[in-house]
């Protein structure tokens, strides 16, 4: 690990002031991802600004029936929170399906949004990797890529975003609240992460001088069901090969509207907007689910070793939709 200096601000304003005025500085929250990256010397900050003391660790109901989640809420506190379990089970399931209990006890919601890819070429310090070393190319394309992305890839990068939580946030249309010294802004969870294009090093819309303060979950209509389906080799403690978060709003026996987000298949939680249109005002059956799955994967561009992810993801979508359907009856 490269040497760094360490600061510990106590207010958001102090933190924002520091990050803006300290070259080479970076925020440290739970550290479960960043400390690992620093050990690998993939990320080498010269100043660590430890934000764990900031008052951003509350989960509170909103007047509109939604919920606001402080960005420093720990993943386990989020996953186990009674309100989340009751009103947003898809989020609880997604959060508790990721990492391990120990990691979730440290990892924060904001940190989870900022999580780095698991691509081993990104992590190995030396292979060409445009995400780590802009313009150097993608080693995974001609190397090992069985776990890599099949949607929204580019010739610069085929890495995936590893988070489970973000997939549920995307399907829940969560809103991310961001602050800088100058302004406060909001962005939809589905728009927070960026596809690689020609600049895979730019992973989110967050500017270096900004901080995530809160995630807002809009209220869900009472007749809503949801679920998170994740597939990995091991039962647990593994990143998703493919996952889907599904939220269905019901009107009688019909789906009024539905949202589908995928994990493990793209550089961001992948919203299936076209497939969602098929769900609108439709009667649920296996045929509908399968056509949603087909539609969702229409643009898939797998590589040699990850072709299986196309069919797997279709199956995951069908399973998630039928599970959410079963919960409605």
């Amino acid at each position: 690990m490269k040497p760094f200096t360490y600061q510990r601000p106590f207010t958001v304003q102090e933190a924002l002031h520091s990050i803006r005025n300290t070259p080479g500085s970076i925020f440290l929250a739970g550290g479960t991802n960043l400390v690992d990256m620093m050990k690998l010397e993939v990320i080498n900050p010269s100043v660590l600004i430890d934000i764990n003391q900031l008052p951003l660790n509350k989960i509170e109901p909103l007047p509109n029936g939604g919920i606001q989640i402080g960005s420093l809420v720990r993943n386990s506190d989020l996953g186990f929170h009674p309100l989340i379990r009751k009103n947003y089970p898809v989020l609880s399931q997604a959060v508790l399906s990721g990492a391990s209990p120990q990691l979730r006890n440290m990892a924060t919601v904001g940190g989870n949004l900022m999580q780095k890819t698991r691509c081993s070429y990104y992590r190995d310090e030396i292979s060409p990797c445009s995400k780590r070393n802009p313009g150097s190319g993608c080693s995974a394309l001609k190397g090992y890529h069985a776990e890599h992305a099949i949607l929204g890839t580019s010739s610069s990068c085929i890495a995936t975003h590893p988070s489970d939580m973000c997939v549920a946030l995307s399907a829940l249309e969560a809103i991310i609240h961001i602050e800088s010294e100058k302004e406060k802004r909001k962005i939809a969870a589905s728009e927070f992460h960026l596809l690689p294009g020609n600049s895979p090093e730019k992973e989110t819309v967050l500017e270096p001088y900004e901080i995530i303060v809160m995630i807002e979950l809009p209220p869900l209509p009472p007749n809503t069901t949801s679920c998170y389906i994740k597939v990995s080799h091991r039962a647990l403690y593994e990143f998703a090969l493919s996952s889907a978060a599904v939220v269905l709003e019901w009107e009688g026996e019909k789906i009024k509207q539905g949202r589908i987000a995928l994990g493990g298949v793209a550089a961001k939680p992948w919203r299936c907007f076209q497939a969602e249109r098929l769900l609108e005002n439709s009667l649920p059956d296996e045929k509908l689910f399968r056509s949603c799955a087909e539609t969702a994967l229409q643009g898939a561009e797998p590589q040699k070793e990850n072709q299986y992810k196309v069919e797997l993801t279709k199956q995951v979508i069908c399973k998630a939709l039928s599970t959410a359907f079963k919960r409605s009856v």
Binding site: Y6, L28, G31, V35, L48, D50, Q102, N105, M106
Partner: peptide, 14 residues
């Protein structure tokens, strides 16, 4: 709370 002490900087535990 249980955590992985390998990923916690000692300064964070002050």
């Amino acid at each position: 709370k249980r955590v992985n002490s390998c990923l916690v900087l000692a300064v964070m535990a002050d």
